[in-house]
Every structure is written in structure tokens, then in C-alpha cells.
Design a protein around this nucleic acid. Structure first.
Length: 296
DNA sequence: TCCCAGGTAGATC
DNA sequence: GATCTACATGGG
């Protein structure tokens, strides 16, 4: 891997185990627009980024090396050795080998804590397209403009103070539905400092999970997603309907309880649970897509 | 039209 | 403790 800077772009050459589309579209983040094949506009950390991938080169448009070093390197988890992680997961596991063969270019993004928490509270009992729409409206109404591309303005995710000032009705107007009251309360608690990101990061997964699930509207699943995507707990293994279905099919061959899947995953994948979960989630969704297409 | 969605809280058995 | 149900809204 080699990083060069030219024409206001930062380019990473010879990147391994990375596919931009898989990373952005695997359901872990919600703030991206596809421009063309392997070309996206994303918003994170109060910035808009135009990025594209050409084979094993990743091009960050209008980006300084300093910005890359300070923001995007960490966000895209560039420096982690995914080759090693995948080898460990594939060992003695046909299912993981298949899943990784299909979507092995996924990286787990290091997203902002407040955005992850709010986004996944919104996500409950909702389709991914709708989650994206609601978050987009929330950002347009309450975020700050951070850039423009082809006539479209992009907005930041509202900061903690702004979120805390949004009335419950404001969340309803974003079409958050019954989740509005959860968002309203969560925003207040975020601002109060009771749920401090630094402290959460220093806790164990279990301790941090207890703090998160203390919030109304945050159960095991939303908590695990926040731990995994927003707080760096890579052992977290969120069990949603997709993961439940695919795990039942691949490892149990029958219906089982979520708790049982959780326990099994903990033993089988250990500290690599989060990666395993993402490969499985993507695999499950790709399978569903194929089934839909073959039905027609 | 009906079923369901990256679930969760509260009620009920 | 385990299971059932309401919840807003809209995609397919």
C-alpha cells in the first residue's frame, strides 16, 4: 500500500481487502450517494467526501494528506489487516469462506458515536431505504451544509447541541414515527454528558452495552450496532432478522432464539464477531436479492 | 390490499 | 421468565 498526493487528490495504491461499494452498501452506514460504479459522495465527521475506487486504487477527491491522515484513514479502517482477519474466520468454516468470497471487500467503518446511536435507534423495525431517507431529512433540516456536488447540497449530521434542541415533534416531521420519543430522550442524554463516549470506550463491551440499553428505544440489537460501528467494539455481534435467518440456515438448520445465536457467535467468532456478522449480513441480503430475481 | 421492515417496551400469561 | 402485541410509516 502506498499513499500519494496529486492534483488535490489523495490516492492509495495497492489497497488490499477493500471494495468501496461493499463497504458503503452493506448497511453499516446510511449517508452516501452512489454517483457511478464504485464512485460515491459520502458525509461523515462534518465533511463531504467524493471518493472512487479503480481496481486497487482508492481516490479521495479534493482531499489533503492531512485530512486523509486525520479523518479518512481511521474512518475507513485503512490500516487494519483484513487479510489476517478473514483467514482466521475462514479456517474450518465453509460458511464463512462462502460469505467472504462474495463480500470480502467489506471494511467496518469507524463512525461517529452520536450519529451511530441516533441512526440505529431510527433503524428499528424499518427497511434500510427508509432509514436512509429519514436520516437524510434529519440532516437537511438540522445539519449544516458541508459541500455540494452536481447541484446537490450535502448536510452534516446535526451535532449534539442541535439534536438536544429538536422537539419531539421535529423528529416526527422527519418521519421517525414512534421512534421520535426515543430520539428526543436520547438527544437529551447525549447532551447531558451522562453517556460519555470516552468512558464508554474504556468499558468492556458488556458494561458499555448496559449503559446503552438503559436508554428507551435501545435494546440488544441497537446497542450492539452502536458498540460495533460507533464505539470500536469489534467483538459485538448484532443479531437482526437477516443475521438470525442466515445463521439458522447455515449453522442450525432450524429456528432458534436470538440469544442462542448470540451465544454461539460469541464462542465461534470471539473478538472477530463484528467482522463475521457483517460478512454474514451481506451474504444473507445478497442471497435474498438473488431469490427475488430468480422468482421473476 | 396485505405483509413486512438491520426492534423494543410494556402487558400478560 | 417466556411470549404476545402495539407501534408510524411506506416499500414491494
Amino acid at each position: 500500500m502506498r499513499i500519494i498526493s496529486e492534483n488535490n487528490n489523495v490516492i492509495i495504491k495497492n489497497i488490499k481487502d477493500f471494495t468501496l461499494s461493499q463497504t458503503l452498501e452493506c448497511g453499516q452506514c446510511f449517508r452516501y450517494d452512489k454517483i457511478s460504479d464504485e464512485e460515491y459522495i459520502i458525509v461523515a465527521f462534518n465533511r463531504m467526501l467524493h471518493i472512487n475506487q479503480e481496481k486497487d486504487s482508492l481516490i479521495f477527491h479534493n482531499t489533503t494528506e492531512e485530512e486523509y491522515e486525520n479523518v479518512w484513514k481511521q474512518y475507513f479502517d485503512i490500516e487494519r489487516d483484513y487479510g489476517k482477519i478473514k483467514e482466521i474466520l475462514k479456517k474450518n468454516d465453509e460458511n464463512m469462506t462462502k460469505a467472504i468470497a462474495l463480500q470480502g471487500g467489506i471494511r467496518i467503518l469507524n463512525q461517529e458515536f452520536r450519529e451511530t446511536l441516533i441512526s440505529f435507534i431510527i433503524s428499528q423495525n424499518q427497511q434500510i431505504v427508509r432509514i436512509r431517507q429519514i436520516i437524510a431529512v434529519l440532516c437537511e433540516k438540522y445539519g449544516e451544509p458541508v459541500g455540494e456536488y452536481k447541484g446537490k447540497t450535502y448536510y452534516s449530521f446535526p451535532d449534539t447541541d442541535v439534536l438536544a434542541d429538536i422537539p419531539e415533534e421535529g423528529y416526527r416531521e422527519c418521519k421517525a414515527g414512534f421512534r421520535a420519543k426515543y430520539l428526543f430522550e436520547a438527544a437529551k442524554i447525549l447532551k447531558s454528558g451522562e453517556l460519555d463516549e470516552k468512558k464508554l470506550r474504556q468499558m468492556t463491551r458488556e458494561e458499555a452495552g448496559v449503559k446503552l440499553t438503559a436508554l428507551k428505544g435501545v435494546g440488544k440489537k441497537v446497542s450492539d450496532c452502536t458498540l460495533l460501528f460507533g464505539l470500536g467494539f469489534r467483538e459485538a455481534f448484532p443479531v437482526d432478522v437477516w443475521v438470525k435467518r442466515i445463521m439458522e440456515e447455515l449453522y442450525f438448520n432450524k429456528d432458534v432464539k436470538k440469544e442462542q445465536i448470540q451465544e454461539f457467535a460469541g464462542e465461534k467468532f470471539g473478538k472477530y464477531g463484528g467482522y463475521a456478522q457483517q460478512y454474514l449480513f451481506a451474504y444473507a441480503r445478497e442471497n435474498a436479492d438473488k431469490k427475488l430475481k430468480t422468482q421473476k
